[in-house]
Every structure is written in C-alpha cells, then in structure tokens.
Design a protein around this nucleic acid. Structure first.
Length: 571
RNA sequence: GGGCCCAUAGCUCAACUGGUUAGAGCAGUCCGCUCAUAACGGAUUGGUUGGGGGUUCAAGUCCCUCUGGGCCUACCA
C-alpha cells in the first residue's frame, strides 16, 4: 500500500467555474484519487478556493458584498457544486483560512531568514477614484504603437506590443473609467528566485518522466533572456494575508498583503492542516503528508492543473519550499491539461458562452458530464466540447453499451428465471475466453490509471463493457433457453457477474451509476477491486437476489440537444 | 518581436527510443440477432499522415522551409 497525496489546482473564488475548469484539474484528480483508493492505497485529495487578489475584491464589489462575506458565500456555492459532481475531496479548504495565514507568514519569515527576500521600491499606478493601486492590466488607454484605444497596461491586444502603463496615452482605470490616476512609489517584497535558479534547474532536470508540456514551460522561464527573474510577492490590497514575519510585524510593510500567487499554493499544505483540524487530528497527522522528516518521504505527491498554472507549480512554489530550508514534500508528478473549447471557441463568462458547472448539473446527472469530459480530456492538445459530440458519446457509451447491457441482462433474467441469480449449467470455453480478454484489458486499464492517461483508461473501460455485449451475442441465452435452460442460466449468471464487475471498475468515472448497479444486485459500494477477473466473475452465487433497475442512462434526444445548443450559444 | 506546442480517415483520437500492408471509436454501407433504452453482434467503405525539400537501407516519427491553429512572454489568476 502506498500513500498518495493529490492536489487539484485551486479554483478562483470570483465566480462559478465552467466545464473547462472542471476537466482541467478537479475532475481528473477525483477520478485518479477514487481509483487509487479502490486499489487500497491511502489517498489524500486536497482542493480549496483561491480567494485573494484584485479580481476577488472587484467581484465582491460588483455583488455588493464585503469581500469576506462574498468569499464565504462563493466558497459554499463552489463546495455544493463540487459535491454535485461527486468530487471526493478529503478537504475543500479556503486560502483565506487561519491556517494559511500562519503558514504563509511562516514561509515568508523563513525566506527572509535565508536572505531570499528583497525589499524593492517601485512605482505603481494609483487610482484615486477606485481608492486602490491598479495592476497593469486594469489600466486601459490608447496604444502608442498602433492607436488602439482599449490597450491594456501590460500589453496591447491589438498589436501585441508589450507595454508599460505609463506608455499609454490617456490612461484610465479599467474598473471605473476614471482618469484621476497618479504614479506613486510603493515598497514590495520580492522573492529572489534568481538565487535559486541553479537548484530549480537541477530539480527540473531530475523529472525525466514529466510531459514536455510541463518541463518545456519551466525551462523557458529558467533560461529565457536573463533567466529566472525575482518576483514580487506582496500587493497593496485590503483583502489578503497581512505581510508579517511569522507572527511578528514586518517593519515598513504595514497594510500590505501577500500576493495571491504566493499564498495560493501554500494553501495546499494549509488545507491539509485544515483537514486535520476538521477531523480532530493532531499536527503529526498532516505533517506525515508534507514533512519528509516526519513520514512524508514515501508519499507520492501528484498535482493536477491546467497549463496556465504550470510555471507557478514548477518554479514559484518549489522556490518557496526549497528556500524555506525546511524538509517540505516536493511534487513528484505534475499532470497538466490543455484547454477545453466550447463549439470551437473559448468559454466566456462575460458573454455567457459555454456551460458552467451549476448549469451542467441542472441539465443532466453528473455521471454524464464526468464520463464525457474524462473520455475527452484535453491531455495531448486542446479539446472541443460540442453538443453533438457530447450527445453522441454519452448515448453510445453510457446508454447503448453499458446501460443497455444492464437492462437486457436483468430483464431477460427476470422474465425467464426470476429476480435471483439462476443456477444450473457451468462456465465453459466462451466464459474462459471472455475472462481472459477482460483480464488483459483490465491490466491495460490499470496501467493507464497508474500513468494518469485518462483517455486511454476510459477507452479500455469501454472496451470491457463492449466485451459483455459481444459475449451475450455469441452465447445467445435467449436461443439456448428454449433447448437447454441450464446453459442459458450459466450465461446469465456470468452476465450478472459482469454487471457487478462493471460497477466496481467503472466507479472512478461514474460513481452514481456504479452505486445504482450495485444496489440493483443487492451489494454496497464497498466491493473490492478484482485481483483476479476469474474470481470476480463468480462472486455472485446462484440464488443471490437482485432488483431489475430503472434505465441507468436515458438518451439525449436530438430535439433536446438542439435546444441546448441554442440556449448556450451566448450573446 | 522571441520561445514552445500542435497539424494523422467525414468527426474525436492512437501509433515505445525512426522498423512489417498507419490503427481504434463514432458516423456511413451491408449482413445477422431479437433478450434489451429502434438497443446488440459481424463485416465493410474511407488516409500519397497540412504543402514542399532533405537525412537514412528505412520517416507520421529526425532536419530545413512554407501554411494554418494554439499557448506563453513574468502586475489576471
């Protein structure tokens, strides 16, 4: 038995996430965690909301709520939706937690003690009307290069030229539109990533099994231009973690907070501490997941995230952990995802384009989404959600192949033998061949899950479902029943055992359907993973009672699909 | 401007460090079955692997170039 620590990238607090966000980290992390738990490993799956930063403050203002209240409410909303998708987080924390405040301040103290923090005076744009400093991209104006009048302070979207806010002609606040701006001097802390470049480079070089997507992004940052740059880790904001050295004040840094990207990854650790607190466990209980000197040495730590998050997880966060000089657990494997597109374009919150998590659950049960999103996960390149593909995939895989299998077997049995596993006859060559095929495919499925190759895993799982239909077709229990009822009985006994097997091994992807299948055959969700397919296919003995279930997966009709296409086309 | 990634059947994707006639699923066509959610099974059509050039006994796989997408470029997160 191994111990596996899994973290999903933290969803930002400013609104409800769309399907792309879901499939980019939370959903695959859940399937992986569920699989590893079923295999008997000790798993800790951690996620949390990422609550600090300018967008959170603006979203709160727009909602007319104090930031703390807005974040608390939105956390609950996200938590409920995560539950709706059956995301099996051991803890869903908050980056604004007391634990994270203390840990973040602790790391800052350690880094300062190691000489890895610089205090830098710099000039930033302050908006009197908004009463806040503005991040570069919250300043708009006319591009000095091409004359585009909605250029942002960091870059002109029209001519792609990189800009400094002071380059803009007639700069204004992107928040209020105010031109009452002033360049003010302010002081911020920088983490000296440049001083850790060598260490980070060597550490990245050791990760030979990481995907190109992951290492190439890290290498780019490490070697491009002058190499890895120092990075500001504080901001002039109200909402956030106060800049302190441990529990001591930081002279000259009153009223400032840590930058969201400094404190967010630390929340992975803090959320584990929150988990221990929530379960009345002691400090050692979470240290054994994170401190290599207290038992975490044999933990395998896997992170799930979309590609935009990779620099922070390959460089910034490791720099924080290394720089502390303390024995914190470093990530063993980073699973990065590309983007999910919606009907060929980007999901857009502002234009209402695409499907958001809350809407998805109103339309169909979570298993439909889980299956389609995971079997089409953007692993090797961007993937495209279209209602046509969704309808086709769900109808074929879930309704026709799996759902119909359960239906045809249970209904046939009920009408010919009654609602118990029939006795008579015995397994022969056909059953041996089926068992062998499933055993081979199961091994491939397990390998894909170990390697976190999600699409490959779903393809193998589907092939195992198909094998059941193939078997039935060739065994023809409906024909055998007329001449040799015992032979038909053994086929159906096998088929009912297949339902049980399917319920167990499909659980990481479609947990609700798994429960329904198990309930139908009077079992619970605690059925163990099949070590031997042969043994697993005799687990249900003759005489075991079952209940013919309702339709597992209803098909999505063409009219319904067209309606959904129109509804989510956006403005 | 610089860097990285991608381009394979109508659609969605495979193909270990270059190695037999480039494979699946879906859609299409034909046949079979009738237990089942008009479901299932079998067979089959379909690709000069974006264009061009090169290296090699051998290239989807390596190199160059062109075209078309995407991402990153450090103060959104």
């Amino acid at each position: 038995m191994a111990r596996i620590l899994i973290t999903s990238a933290l969803p930002y607090i400013n609104g409800i996430k769309h399907l792309g966000n879901l499939v980019g980290s939370q959903l695959p992390s859940d399937a992986y965690a569920r699989y590893m738990r079923q295999r008997g490993h000790e798993v800790l799956l951690i996620c949390a909301t990422d609550e600090h930063g300018t967008p959170a403050e603006l979203a709160a203002a727009k909602a007319g709520k104090p930031v703390a209240e807005f974040c608390a409410d939105m956390w609950q909303v996200q938590k409920d939706i995560a539950d709706g998708f059956r995301l099996s987080f051991d803890h869903f924390g908050r980056s604004s937690s007391e634990r994270n405040h203390r840990l973040t301040q602790h790391f800052a103290e350690r880094l300062a003690g190691a000489g890895l923090i610089d205090e830098v005076h710099e000039k930033q744009v302050f908006s009197h009307t908004d009463g806040r400093f503005l991040p570069d991209r919250y300043i708009e104006g006319t591009c000095p290069n091409c004359g585009y009048d909605k250029a942002r302070g960091d870059q002109c979207e029209n001519c792609t030229k990189q800009l400094d806010p002071t380059d803009l002609i007639e700069p204004r606040s992107a928040i209020s539109g105010s031109t009452d701006l002033e360049v003010r001097e302010t002081k911020h802390l920088y983490i000296r990533q440049s001083a850790m470049r060598q260490h980070l480079d060597e550490w990245i070089d050791k990760q030979s099994d990481w995907p190109i997507l992951t290492t190439s992004i890290a290498k780019k940052w490490l070697h491009d231009g002058d190499g890895l740059q120092d990075r500001s880790i504080t901001r002039d904001l109200d909402w956030g973690i106060a800049v302190k050295k441990g529990d001591k004040d930081w002279p000259g840094m009153d009223g400032k907070v840590f930058y969201v990207w400094f404190d967010a990854p630390i929340e992975y650790i803090a959320a584990t501490a929150e988990w221990a607190d929530a379960n009345d466990l002691d400090e050692a209980a979470w240290h054994r997941w994170w401190r290599t000197d207290e038992g975490a040495d044999d933990v395998r730590y896997v992170q799930f995230m979309a590609k935009d998050n990779i620099p922070f997880h390959t460089l910034s966060f490791p720099a924080t952990l290394m720089g502390s000089g303390e024995p914190w657990k470093m990530v063993n494997y980073i699973k990065g995802f590309n983007w999910l597109l919606y009907e060929g374009g980007k999901f857009s919150t502002s234009q209402g384009r695409g499907v958001f998590m809350n809407e998805a659950l109103e339309i169909l049960p979570s298993d439909y989404w889980r299956w389609w999103l995971l079997s089409n996960a953007p692993e090797s390149s961007d993937a495209d959600f279209t209602w046509e593909n969704f309808q086709g995939g769900v109808n074929k895989d879930l309704a026709d192949v799996l759902g119909n299998f359960v239906s045809r077997v249970t209904k046939f049995c009920r009408s010919k033998f009654g609602e118990t596993v029939p006795e008579g006859g015995q397994y022969g060559e056909a059953e041996a061949a089926l068992t062998a095929e499933i055993q081979t495919r199961l091994i491939a499925y397990e390998k894909a899950m170990e390697d976190i190759e999600i699409r490959k895993a779903t393809a193998e799982l589907r092939a195992i479902w198909v094998a059941g239909n193939e078997y039935l077709q060739h065994a023809e229990p409906w024909a055998k029943f007329k001449t040799d009822p015992d032979a038909a009985a053994s086929v159906i006994r096998m088929a009912l055992n297949l339902i049980r097997l399917y319920a167990v091994i499909s659980r990481p992807f479609i947990p609700d359907a798994s429960d329904q299948m198990l309930a139908a055959i009077n079992l619970s969700g605690t059925e163990s993973w099949p070590d031997s397919v042969k043994a697993a296919l005799t687990a249900l003995p003759a005489g075991h009672a079952f209940t013919t279930p309702d339709v597992l997966f209803a098909k999505i009709a063409d009219e319904a699909r067209e309606e959904l296409e129109a509804r989510f086309a956006g403005s």
